[in-house]
Amino acid sequence: MSKTVMIVDDSATMVLSLKSTLEMSGLKVETASDGLQALSKLKSGTKPDLIITDINMPNMGGLELIKNVRTLAGFRFTPILTLTTESQAEKRDEGKRLGATGWLVKPVAGPDLVKVIKQVLPGA
């Protein structure tokens, strides 16, 4: 059964780049362009096995999204990775405190992405 990954990023370029890599690895991909959109998708039945979210987004940023996701019944244990840059160490830590599983550092190279996903998603 193929796993579903949700990508949340306001940059369509970043979404496209990640989506291509993931789909080529046989994963299903859902996308959202900010935290609000992601939340409403999660509430309306989308059930990703992993969420990858950018930090800086309009409307609702990644950190707030994480906080909210953890309060949703079906997503207490869902792995969440933040998308950060190398200079955002404090955001990564904050993300972890709020319930993120780990982080990815942009630019995310395809093989690295796949590797990390294999690491957090048993059966992927």
Partner: peptide
């Protein structure tokens, strides 16, 4: 945010 995102994208 804009500069940051653009930089992130250019890294691709």
């Amino acid at each position: 945010r804009l500069v940051h995102t653009l930089k992130g994208n250019s890294g691709l």
